[in-house]
Simulated scan of single mutants.
Amino acid sequence: MRADAARNLATVLRTGARLLAEDPSTSMAAIAAAAGVDRTTVHRRFASREALLRAVFQAKLDSSERVLNEARLTEAPVPVALHRYLEGIIPVSREWPVDTRQMMQRDPEARARRDALSERLSAFLRRAADEGHLRTDIDAAWTRGVLDRLVETVAHDFPSMEAPQAADLVADTFLRGVGARRAAS
């Protein structure tokens, strides 16, 4: 793929993600116009709005998978892995603001992939609890929900906060909120 074509594709995907997050019924023509490309360029690459949406979700899943790999959730010390994860996933959430749940209803392959990535994060949180970093008297689903909402909140409600600062804030809030209580020294 030529460099300009690759740039156009990336622009269309990012623009599509943003516009579809704001309004899921956004037309391909509106996405093309906002991306600054010809409508035929978008239609040549994507046969339908559904195909474009599927490509946006795949790009988000690709980015999420990269973050999970780089965080080293199974090897790095829990606080380090948590911070790496947060510092990576917050920008992904900002760049790809679409809700993957809507695609999961239509695409079993994407759902399986998302579920596998989600399980990796859940396994990390079980590890964190087993190692004493998280409270074990709180339901694991609640703990996961808290982490997910904190990421969503900082990513979308505080978009000007830099990822490292946002990761610090989320990690501190998370570990103090559902973190294991330590005995006072």
Rank of each mutant, 00 (worst) to 15 (best):
R176V: 10
E152I: 01
A140S: 11
R106N: 02
H156R: 13
V170R: 05
P77M: 01
F124E: 07
A141L: 09
D157V: 03
A155G: 08
R149A: 10
R113V: 09
A163Q: 05
W96C: 03
R120G: 10
L86H: 01
A128M: 08
V178I: 08
V146F: 09
P77C: 02
Y85V: 01
D107C: 05
T136M: 06
D107V: 05
E152C: 01
R144S: 15
A141Q: 12
V80W: 03
N69G: 14
G177R: 10
Q165H: 09
L86R: 02
W142A: 13
F174A: 06
R106M: 00
H156T: 12
P159I: 02
L117E: 14
S160E: 13
V92N: 03
T136I: 05
W96A: 02
E119T: 13
R106F: 00
W96I: 01
A76R: 00
A110G: 15
D137L: 01
P164L: 00
E109L: 11
D139N: 06
S122G: 10
A128K: 04
A81I: 02
R113D: 15
D99E: 12
G88I: 01
A141N: 15
A155E: 14
R127P: 00
D168E: 05
L125W: 04
R176P: 15
P91D: 04
V78L: 00
A140P: 02
N69E: 14
I89E: 11
S160H: 09
T173W: 15
A180L: 08
D172Q: 11
A163Y: 02
F124P: 00
A180C: 03
P164Q: 03
H83S: 09
A140T: 13
L117W: 12
V80K: 05
A81K: 00
D130G: 14
V178P: 13
T136Q: 14
R84L: 11
S93A: 06
T153K: 05
A71P: 10
E87V: 02
A71H: 04
P108F: 00
H156G: 09
D139M: 00
R106S: 01
H156W: 10
L134S: 06
P79D: 10
T173N: 13
Q102H: 15
L121T: 13
E95M: 02
V154K: 07
L121P: 02
E119G: 07
R126V: 14
W142S: 13
T100R: 14
L121E: 10
D130Y: 07
V146A: 12
R94A: 00
F124H: 04
S122L: 14
L175D: 11
R72S: 13
P108G: 04
R66E: 11
A76P: 03
V98Q: 14
S93W: 08
I89C: 00
A116D: 03
F124L: 07
W96Q: 07
A167P: 13
A171Y: 05
E162V: 08
R176K: 12
A112F: 14
A76Q: 06
R126I: 13
I138P: 09
G132I: 14
A171M: 06
V151A: 00
I138H: 05
D99N: 09
D115H: 13
R111A: 15
A128C: 06
R94G: 03
V170H: 07
L82A: 04
D168Y: 00
E75T: 07
R135D: 08
D157K: 12
D157Q: 12
Q102T: 15
V67W: 12
